[in-house]
Design a protein around this nucleic acid. Sequence first.
DNA 1: GTCTATAGTACGATAGAC
DNA 2: GTCTATCGTACTATAGAC
Lengths: 185, 185
Amino acid sequence: MISTRRKIVVIADQLIRSRGYNAFSYSDIANRLNLKNAAIHYHYPSKAALGKAVIIESREKFLEQTKLWKDASHKEQVRLFLDIYQNNRKNGGICFMGAFGASYATLPEEMRTELKVAHTEINNWLSKTLEAGKDEKAITFDTSAAEMADLITASMMSSLILERISSRDMTSEIARNLIKGLEEK
Amino acid sequence: MISTRRKIVVIADQLIRSRGYNAFSYSDIANRLNLKNAAIHYHYPSKAALGKAVIIESREKFLEQTKLWKDASHKEQVRLFLDIYQNNRKNGGICFMGAFGASYATLPEEMRTELKVAHTEINNWLSKTLEAGKDEKAITFDTSAAEMADLITASMMSSLILERISSRDMTSEIARNLIKGLEEK
DNA sequence: GTCTATAGTACGATAGAC
DNA sequence: GTCTATCGTACTATAGAC
């Protein structure tokens, strides 16, 4: 049986990615679990603590996923990485980096620190994977792997944001173009 | 003398781009103008009305700026367009499309509609300018002008968001790379 | 250990003062 | 025409019930 504690983080994550960190409340979560809002405070004493837990959860989930991919080719791993954004899109949200990043100025220090760690972890993994794919001649790009990683995460992030405004399937379009770009020789 | 009404929109715009639409209050604006929060309601009856006014203000400002550039070369106009993001960055905010976009799910319909119009206007202008620059052989790109416009606005948007997390000058870096890309033959 | 009743504050908005 | 006093609601959080 999945614990209330875990259910809370999962729901919070969903709310943050769809509505934003400053537009969800403890009551939103409590209602979905048929509890009073104060019950959430037992599991996560403050909103900052819950926000931090959501970021840590996202980090752990990311590291778990990449471990599962370790037998796939590096090129395939990049494709699987782009699928994460597609999955965010399917459940009506943007990526957690974009959601927290847009509210960055309002976040307490403990959340900012955690977010920086997450950003570093993601870009390190993607840089390494791109580099390894390049060594295998399966992936090509001109700039440094770190800059290519920045370009990929940045364009996927904003495709999710803009998609809701433009009503076009920008995420698939940009993902396709990124893959295409990495395949050109 | 600049009217209170105009001062309110300017401050709201600044707050929305730095903190987000759901993280600023009428009191924040009132305090800066030495007024009570209710005074803001006289000028803008609801937060939705103020939000809508900020979007309209941004649209008008954008159209005014592009008019001033009309004698510059199309390539120069693209460079000037990228400067808008740099200016947002200098006063501590992200672009208005990113700020509203991240909170899109929480916005009232009147704001969503206005935001879509703004998005269309910006991408139309940029597409046309890119196309004209291409015709003059001053700019080169492979995809359609509309897709190139998407790529530019998307990557500039997220560079502003990520910059606050990564503490790196990503905006300048990405702007430079975009210009470089458009210059390659 | 888990949750509820309730406090205290800040929000957006209305009615009415000047 | 412009602004303030004030309302009702919803928020985060604490103290204490079960």
